[in-house]
């Protein structure tokens, strides 16, 4: 067996992907300077790639995990439908609030776990959100510019005066499950500077111990890539 036969064998191993790191680098360098081995690689690399096709899942039993992952992905990539409450939309809500009367104001003014910014914004919220705020069982966790709300049905982020987003970026919410060490990606959304944003997060409120928000590249991230705008312990 010639020395070059050894090189050709090494090339086959490289094409299959079973060389260690150093050997792979050496093989790559050799291929750049050796036509014979380069031709061998061109012949065998697609054969190696074709091996992967034999693993394609054909079994119906895997339909469920595939659907599960698809659902998670779509939740990650589709911006959450944000409910933006503007002044003109808030007329009905204001009327509703007036009807609710002074007891509402007394309640909210006494409550020191809602940020003042949120209070003034709350007047413009929809009747449903006002009802949510008034419900005795709703837990409120104030933020510098908003509130995290938790009731039996969900986990909500009420945010105002968010910073302007750089082009190609989105806001992304994160949740930490109780006992977990890693934040999980939640809703992504875009919002303009002066809008009030109310979104329902995907995480289960019963098992969530913290909520965070960061600015991420468009489409969101699997892990936060920028410092959090806030991290709020809840529950």
């Amino acid at each position: 067996m010639s020395d070059h036969d050894l090189d050709l064998e090494q090339t086959a191993l490289f094409a299959l992907g079973c060389l260690n790191q150093e050997e792979a680098q050496a093989a790559r360098r050799h291929l750049m300077n050796c036509t014979l081995c380069s031709d061998e690689y061109a012949l065998l690399a697609p054969t190696g790639d074709a091996l992967a096709l034999s693993a394609e899942s054909g079994a119906q039993e895997y339909t469920l995990p595939l659907r599960r992952v698809k659902k998670k992905l779509l939740a990650q990539i589709k911006p959450a439908k944000t409910t933006q409450f503007r002044w003109y939309q808030g007329i009905a809500a204001i009327a509703c609030c007036i009807a609710i009367g002074a007891s509402f104001w007394a309640y909210t003014r006494k409550s020191d776990d809602i940020h003042p910014t949120s209070q003034s914004a709350d007047v413009r919220l929809s009747p449903q959100t006002v009802a949510l705020l008034l419900a005795p069982g709703t837990k409120r966790y104030p933020l510098a510019h908003g509130t995290v709300l938790i009731d039996n049905h969900g986990l909500y982020l009420i945010l105002t005066r968010l910073p302007a987003l750089p082009p190609g970026h989105v806001f992304q919410a994160w949740t930490l499950a109780k006992g977990a060490k890693k934040m999980q990606p939640d809703r992504i959304f875009t919002d303009s500077l002066d809008d009030l944003t109310a979104i329902q997060l995907m995480a289960n409120p019963a098992t969530t111990s913290a909520v965070a928000l960061s600015i991420e590249p468009s489409g969101g991230s699997l892990q936060p890539t920028t410092p959090a705008l806030f991290v709020r312990r809840v529950g």
Binding site: L53, A55, S57, Y62, P65, R68, V69, K70, L73
Partner: peptide, 23 residues
């Protein structure tokens, strides 16, 4: 997705890890 999931499952041997790779 079936192709990616299949490769990951074949290499890793458990559904949860294969789902992580797929996602």
């Amino acid at each position: 997705s079936r192709l990616v999931f299949g490769i990951a499952l074949r290499m890793l041997g458990d559904t949860a890890s294969a789902e992580d790779v797929l996602q």
